[in-house]
Nucleic acid binder design. Structure first.
Length: 334
DNA sequence: TCTGGGGTCCTCTTTCTC
DNA sequence: TCTGGAGAAAGAGGACCC
């Protein structure tokens, strides 16, 4: 979906159409938080997702800042996914605003299917999306990104050299800022340059698993199947304080309430956990985690809270705390 | 002065168990 | 009772995704 959160807001408040809309945090650009989504009008000012709200405000002071309304976006997301499932039951969810659809067994022309999907989403939900068509997920994802917004891009078997190789390595799924910078340092900037690197060298530079992955990905090879069902592996809650704090009461109270929330979450979805992990980030942004595995699987708030505070005891609180969080893992269906 | 929140997966190290 | 090794499990951190 194109600028999904912003588009949903513009749909329910048409007066926002054509304006720079910035969704993030609590919607107050003077407070801590980052941009979740910026409308294309706001992107013209250099605003993009993951940017601190305060920075976005400096770049675009006349922008309309709104809080994230996750429930509303989830509702709309479900409608989008239902439309998709009507075209093929084999669908993989990729977060709230993306999905893969396997249309291998469809009788209709893929491009025609894509046009119909775009049309239905536009007519029923008044939203724009970008679709990529290719023989595997890796290439379809790259394709969907090539002509945003409101795009429809097909990558065919013979297109790898012409279409994929000139692209920067960052366009490959799994290559983030760190890997991009590292590859740049060894003079690899494009996917084609990556593809020119012998497998042994890649493994030497990046390890066995990642080296092999990039070797194949740079050639457009991806055999991974669509994942239509999966079980959660962990559940977590964390908050960044509006001001860094060294007040024990505040820290303890916050930790207790986060623990209660995340315990409610797993209870609701009928899971038990065995491992709790405390996460703490100090004012200097140094982040630590301390884990504690319990003797039994549990969803008891008291037992989990006890383990969380045990974990907290393993960390020296000498600096002010910026963020605190709790993760429950080692999950098992109740 | 700034850097969210909810996840997954991978790698390396430490600890436990036999 | 002490020592050591192997393999599994747990713990910690980091990179990446939306």
């Amino acid at each position: 979906m194109d600028a999904f959160f912003a588009a949903v807001e513009q749909k329910r408040r048409p007066e926002l159409i054509g304006k720079p809309v910035i969704i993030g945090g609590g919607g107050d650009p003077t407070k801590r938080g980052v941009v979740s989504t910026a409308s294309y009008e706001a992107r013209k000012f250099g605003v993009h997702s993951a940017m601190p709200l305060r920075t976005a405000y400096k770049l675009c002071p006349h922008g309309i800042f709104l809080p994230v309304d996750y429930e509303e976006y989830s509702r709309v997301s479900k409608k989008v996914k239902n439309i998709l499932r009507g075209f093929s039951p084999v669908m993989e969810d990729v977060g709230i605003d993306e999905a893969f659809l396997d249309i291998t067994n469809a009788s209709e022309d893929p491009e025609e299917i894509a046009r119909k999907i775009k049309e239905r989403i536009r007519e029923e939900l008044e939203l724009a999306c970008s679709i990529g068509i290719a023989e595997n997920k890796l290439l379809a994802k790259i394709a969907s990104d090539l002509q945003k917004p409101d795009g429809l891009t097909i990558i065919r078997e013979g297109d790898i050299e012409k279409v994929i190789w000139p692209l920067p390595v960052r366009k490959l799924w799994g290559v983030g800022p760190k890997t991009e910078a590292y590859l740049k340092s060894i003079n690899i900037n494009t996917i084609g340059e990556l593809a020119a690197m012998p497998l042994e060298n890649l493994i030497g530079y990046l390890g066995n698993s990642y080296g092999n992955y990039l070797y194949e990905a740079s050639r457009g090879i991806d055999e991974s199947p669509l994942v239509t069902h999966w079980e959660p592996k962990s559940s977590s809650r964390e908050v960044t304080f509006q001001r860094d704090t060294n007040d024990w009461q505040t820290i303890a109270r916050t930790l207790a309430s986060l623990t209660k929330e995340v315990t409610e979450d797993i209870k609701q979805s009928r899971y038990l956990c065995k491992t709790v992990t405390l996460k703490i980030r100090f004012e200097d942004f140094k982040t630590y985690t301390r884990a504690r595995t319990m003797d039994e699987f549990t969803d008891s708030n008291e037992i989990i809270r006890k383990a969380v505070f045990e974990a907290l005891g393993k960390i020296e609180l000498k600096k002010k705390v910026r963020l605190i969080g709790v993760r429950l893992s080692n999950l098992k269906k109740a």
